[in-house]
């Protein structure tokens, strides 16, 4: 057994996973994730299939390390980035089939791409998770973000996002970049009105158009 203690990134970065009922500002430094990207309706067949592949690789990497007596880590919560083609942010107007997403599990920086390839090979050899080969190791630096806990159905995130936008503007900030969700609840059994999701939206200084005379 490894003498090193298990890494729990969720606990280590409590400041980045605050689930506040009011909007707060957080700063996201570079963070590493296992990721898999796709397109289509949330909860659809491709989406569900990719979640399975992502967890399969995460478990296999973790357990292989543990067996070898190397640094163990807790598998974090599922996170997803959402975006639309072009510059649009209007998810309400674009059919869900055309939503782009990147499913992510936060991972310690020490994990190497070779470990992912190894895990994918093992899963494929056992006939599990054909999409395992698409799982990648990616680093993201989101910088300053507004974050807030959303309680309720995913379809009702609009009101939470509005509160976040209002807060950002009061701070002289404007929303930009990809809509980021961190799932605290499991929609398989938790009723929609009780689902807890952290929303994270990158922000930057509002740009004022200078009046040129």
């Amino acid at each position: 057994m490894a003498s090193t203690e298990k890494i729990d990134l969720f606990k280590q970065h409590k400041d980045q996973y605050v689930a506040a009922k009011k909007p707060v500002l957080v700063t996201m430094d570079e963070a590493t994730y296992l990721t898999i990207t796709g397109r289509g309706a949330p909860g659809g067949p491709e989406f569900t299939d990719r979640i399975g592949a992502l967890y399969g690789v995460a478990f296999t990497v973790k357990m292989t390390r543990k067996f070898a007596g190397r640094q163990d880590f807790a598998i974090g919560k599922l996170e997803t980035q959402w975006w639309l083609d072009g510059d649009s942010h209007d998810f309400g107007r674009v059919p869900r089939e055309r939503w782009n997403w990147r499913l992510m599990i936060r991972t310690p920086p020490g994990v190497a791409p070779r470990e992912l390839e190894d895990a994918a090979r093992k899963l494929l050899a056992k006939g599990k998770a054909p999409a395992a080969e698409q799982v990648k190791l990616e680093s993201l630096t989101e910088g300053p973000c507004v974050q807030m806990l959303h309680v309720g159905p995913y379809a009702e995130e609009g009101r939470t996002i509005e509160a976040m936008r209002t807060f950002a503007e009061s701070q002289g900030l404007t929303l930009h970049g990809r809509h980021h969700e961190i799932y605290l609840s499991d929609p398989r059994r938790v009723p929609p009105e009780k689902l807890k999701t952290i929303l994270r939206l990158p922000v930057r200084k509002q740009e004022f158009r200078r009046e040129v005379d």
């Binding site: 399969g56 357990m63 895990a119 050899a125």
Partner: peptide
């Protein structure tokens, strides 16, 4: 659980499903 998951997980036996 830890022993079971470690032995199956390292062989790629903990997959979706």
């Amino acid at each position: 659980w830890e022993r079971l998951c470690m032995h199956l997980g390292k062989d790629g036996l903990l997959g979706p499903g």
